[in-house]
Every structure is written in structure tokens, then in C-alpha cells.
Amino acid sequence: MTDLLAVNNLQVGFRGVEGPMVVRGVSFTLLPGETVGLVGESGSGKSLTAQAIMGLLPAAASIGKDSSIVFRGTELVRASAKQLQELRGSRIAMVFQDPFSSLNPTMKLGEQVAEVLRMHKGMNKRNALARTAELFDLVRLPDAKTKVSLYPHEISGGQRQRVLLAMSFACRPELLIADEPTTALDVTVQAQILALMRELATETQCGVLLITHDLGVVAETCQRVLVMYAGQIVESGSAQQVLTAPLHPYTQGLLKALPPLDGDRVTRLYSLPGQPPNLGLGIRGCSFLERCPIGRNDPCSIEEPALRAIGHSGQSVRCHLAG
């Protein structure tokens, strides 16, 4: 199967290309219909990676010279604003964390979704509104017919996220980029939205890049996982492999630091010491060394580890000592 999305050596920096890079050589591929989780803590570069794919980086950020993002054969890094505009909303759809600020507060819900259909599908207003009502049914908004003429503030956060999913899937996209789509929601509503997202993606065979900090969400949604730390992918593999047999000490630490929901309560949680490195100061050797329980002077402080495959299982890790 050919890749839906191929990201190669993606570098994102601020203050020009000479400044420190905050996304430092990220490469991965996404197959059609596949859901891949991009996991990391704040500052790991996961959201910048997503923004780079969508061509929505902040003005102060710039992409490195050798970076490449290929979507269905089209190079996005050097694409024109017009080309990107045509792709976004039709073939590449997006859902963000905050469903309130993603919607226009002065426009009726139905009109906002219909606008997408009119823009990208050239539908007239009447047809677009009729299709919108169907989409609202599809995402199981209660009273879909009346919701069309409501404003964003009149519905709950979970319902707003349903509207955004309706908008995302309006043009049957090939790729959905979801940046922390359920982080602002309550846990019961989160479960509903994740179930809906899984269902829509399966039905339309849409590839999904799910950005999240929650390993539980990954387990329930993703086939593959990429773990980011300090701007790099430090581990990748199937969700099964990474969550049950993590190889990188960072992934291991993240999983151990979660308080368990069953079994005996422990008096002390495992915690990684310290905090992520300041990328502005430059890094020599492994970026995780300072917090690493198994790291040692040689080779960890001297040589930067490469992302290397372990066995033939498809699991890769950026660590000298793993495996």
C-alpha cells in the first residue's frame, strides 16, 4: 500500500533556520485508513509537527531546508498557500482541542458546516444545509434538525466537538489530524467522542494522526504510536508493542508514572526526575540522559542515539542501551 502521508526529516525552528530547532528531524509514514498516535508532553514538539503538516505553523516558526511532507504524492512544504487552502478542509481535515474557539461564535452551526460544503464541493446553499442536517444526524447530535440553527454557545462542549467532527468529515477527508480532541472534555463525554471518531474513520477509511498526551486514549484508538521527546521521535511501534513492552526508558517511565486504577495502592509513584531539556542551550549526546535511570557517560553523553529498529517487529527506539 502506498503511503497516505510521508513526513521526512521534519525540522521546525523559531528565529530563522539558524536558531535552535524544536522539532528535530521527525520522520514517519501513515497508511490509508490507519490511526497513528503522536504522544508527548508539553514542549515535545507534537503540536508543531501537526501544524507543519497542515501548513498552519505560527508566523515566527520556519521549516528546515531538507524537510519534506508528502501527502498523496504532493509535497506540502513547498506548496502554495492556495494549494494548501484547497487541501485543508476537503482532503485533510482537522479537529482541535478547544471546540469553542474552533467555531465562529457569531455564525449558526448549520451555516458553518454548510460553508465547508459550499467552498469545497461547490454545493448551493439549500443542498449544503440539507447535507449538514444529515451530517449532524451522522455524528448523533440530539435533535439534529434544530441544532442547525443554534449558535455555538447554546450547546455543550461534547456537542461542539460533534459539530467539528461533522465539519471534518463533511468532504470525506483522506486524512484527519486531531490535536488533543478530547482533552477539554469530561471523561464520559471523551469516551463518546473517541468512539464516534473511531467509527467515522473506519467507515470512511480515513487515516488519522491523533496528537495526545494520554496513553489511555492511544490504547483505545490507535494502531501505531510515535512517542516524542525533546523534538524527536524516541520510540515507535504498534500500540500493542509500545504500551505493553516499551523499550525507551522515557516511555517506560511515562507508563510507570500513571497511578493505577486497580490493584494495591502504592505509597510512592514512580517518577522521572527533573524536566525536559532546554533546546535553546543545545544538546550533546542523548537528550534524555539527564533524566534517564539507565544512562551512562559512554556512549550516552557523547553520541546522539539514532532511531533504530529492534528485531523485525517494527518497533524502533532512539536509545543506545535498549534492546
Partner: peptide, 16 residues
Amino acid sequence: PIPDPDRTPPTPPAIE
């Protein structure tokens, strides 16, 4: 959500 890929996520009630 629990970081256990072997667990089948429960089907939540569709409508809040």
C-alpha cells in the same frame, strides 16, 4: 481510557 491495548473500550451511550 486505560493504557492497555488488549482491553476493548466499552461502548458508551451514544447520546448525552
